[in-house]
Design a protein around this nucleic acid. Structure first.
Lengths: 382, 382
DNA sequence: ATCACACATGGGAGCGCTCCCACCGTACCC
DNA sequence: GGGTACGGTGGGAGCGCTCCCATGTGTGAT
């Protein structure tokens, strides 16, 4: 708005004044600066800070960037000047000069994707945001479109717009990860696409969570435990199935494929799978669903079939979403530390993009793979 | 597997070095540039495009920015060069030179805030993202911290880091909006803070939604309709209460304060309010809750009290969240067009930040206030 | 006292872009 | 014929910062 035409007469001391009393900005047109800022609408520049502190540009830059090569008194003087002028570095200039962006992109799949649903999204974002906030990095949200868009996206991301990329809920056949890897941008993926995920990744212990859930069912005396799994091409889904199998095997149960039904992570899928299961094994007394949504579907079918939960059939879900908490009866579910995964992803990508400080050569032991523990939240359904 | 282990020796200056020549892409794991790009790892610059097309820098810039002052053949030549080189403008440089950011910030309150819960967050983000994608603007996610942080935040946002700010779920006493308004950054708020919201805003028709819900209850033959409202300092909550009152008044019911209970938008609050209501008016036959979460709480209390839903008491919520869909029975709820609100917000800031061609057209009719219609989604609970 | 070698510091040279002004033609006017 | 207008174009001058080299100014060793 008010153009940059304004002739500014650097008026440094306004600082304190503005802060303490300036609120009187009755003149609606006049942007009462939130912090002291020499009038003229323009934010102070590094050069102005330097002049104000009586030092050179380079010194101010050093102070801002935390270089140790500045004497204590000088640093103090510069910091005072910065505070007084309410100086805030111009990101664009910094990015241009330093050839970095101070920003991390979180690429989210299209809205229809399962990921976008609760609770995943907000928690991941929350975790990522938290970790990033500590470092002054910015969080860019980017939406991956179709195949063509993805190519363009990789290109854009590569064009020095971000220092790192966070990928979530990526399907195994998505070209984006490889496109990105090709550009050399540090990339971290949440949810491995396979056991041999080539990208640094953060995942939750799907197998362990499933195993714990089933073990819990067994400890409650359940004998015929079925499972509703997601499409097995989804690595996480197959891990959950593995966990289910392992728990049963550990308890001495013989493998029984008739207790396994594959669905697609939707409620309708859950209903259908439950019907199948009931038809095949009418005597089942417990069901472990690989997601809360599928559990919700299963619950409906069970009800319709006259089975009481948990009296006749115990039910456990996965995700510990709001649905689980509000279901009737409340659903026992495997909680994934989503927010923590977000934090971990952010930290991982930061370390990749980071200075690679001397002495932290990271033994070339392949990509970093983090697997975070899950937790069984026991509620009324089991 | 050890794909990215290519981390070179800790060599501080690598950055600069790499840009000029190095990283010849010949080593590492086949970079396979997404698009043709002059080798050397460096992204082509505008200058290179100009040379390639045999024109001047200015002309290329004009083409990129869609200036009409370029002849057709020249434009074609430039576009060909751009495509051939796989040129992508450097955002930082552009931002620096043009003094704009090409980015909009979405400021979200802290995670504990109600807002962060489903379904608000993802839908808003989705809508905003969609609208922004069309314009090539970036979406920055920022987290508002405590009071002090907010001051800092306003400062940062003002320091030319974004062209506009989107505020969501702002409490009436939050200083951030005013801080921002003071800096002159285009700001749009979702959910007016009062009837006289000074900021451009996008809101849903809370009163209308509530009125429709209650009218629906009346049409179903309910006579004693109670309501559980949120804290009335929250403008939206008081609007919903107004809608409730209006519907009743329109049906000729006399105002009855004993049918109104105030809660705090939490499940526990809903339970407590329902208990109150039941104690005061045991004969009530319907409840309109100002949020699904409170409705969930109310439902529990009703159940515990032996009331059947909807046979004895009809229940309606607000938000149409996943909770509503999965409740038992499924909850009738007032849907807000959240995603559309996100889109509207984005478009609004864009128009504020936008060209603002010569002078300041904008018929100075006060801040833009958009109120989007709500919709009653009828389910089993009513 | 001299030399060497740290440090601390100042400031030039860009980073890649937009802005804007000068300049070129060509079409049109008197 | 010589203006007068332009639409089209090239390129200088920065935008505010980081880098890095050159230049002081202390200290210790000789």
């Amino acid at each position: 708005m008010t153009a940059r035409t304004a002739r500014e007469a650097p008026e440094p001391r306004t600082a304190r004044a503005a802060r303490t009393d300036r609120t009187a900005g009755t003149d609606r047109t006049a942007p009462a600066a939130p912090a002291a800022r020499s009038r003229g609408g323009k934010a102070p520049t590094l050069e102005e800070v330097a002049a104000h502190a009586g030092v050179g540009r380079g010194t101010v830059s050093r102070v801002i960037n935390g270089s140790p090569r500045v004497s204590a008194p000088t640093r103090a003087a510069v910091e005072a000047a910065i505070a007084e002028l309410g100086y805030v570095p111009n990101r664009a200039a910094r990015a241009l000069a330093a050839n970095r962006a101070d920003a991390i992109a979180l690429v989210v799949p299209e809205p229809e994707a399962r990921f976008f649903a609760e609770p995943y999204f907000s928690d991941i974002v929350s975790g990522v945001g938290e970790a990033l906030a500590e470092t002054g990095m910015q969080l860019l949200l980017t939406f991956a479109g179709g195949a063509r868009e993805r190519r363009r996206l990789a290109q854009y991301l590569a064009a020095h717009r971000v220092d790192g990329v966070l990928l979530v809920s990526v399907r195994a056949d998505d070209p984006l990860p490889d496109l990105l890897a090709g550009t050399g941008i540090p990339t971290v993926i949440s949810g491995r696409r396979s056991a041999a995920e080539p990208l640094p990744s953060v995942d939750s212990d799907n197998a362990g969570g499933a195993r714990t859930a089933v073990a819990h069912l067994l400890s409650r005396g359940r004998r015929t435990i079925a499972t509703i799994t997601g499409r097995l091409e989804v690595y996480g889904a197959s891990c959950r199935l593995d966990g289910y199998r392992r728990a049963l095997a550990e308890a001495g149960h013989a493998p029984d494929e008739s207790l396994i039904a594959v669905a697609d992570f939707t409620e309708e899928g859950g209903r259908r799978a439950m019907r199948e299961l009931l038809a095949r094994r009418p005597a089942l007394d417990a069901v472990f669903a690989a997601s809360d949504v599928m559990a919700a579907g299963a619950r409906q079918t069970l009800r319709a079939a006259g089975r009481r939960i948990p009296d006749d059939v115990a039910l456990i879900g996965f995700d510990d979403s709001a649905i689980a908490r509000h279901m009737d009866p409340p659903l026992t579910s495997v909680r994934q530390p989503i927010e923590e995964m977000g934090r971990a992803m952010a930290r991982l990508v930061l370390s990749e993009a980071g200075p690679t400080p001397p002495g932290k050569p990271e033994p070339g032991a392949g990509p970093q793979q983090l697997v975070l523990p899950t937790e069984l939240v026991v509620r009324g359904s089991s």
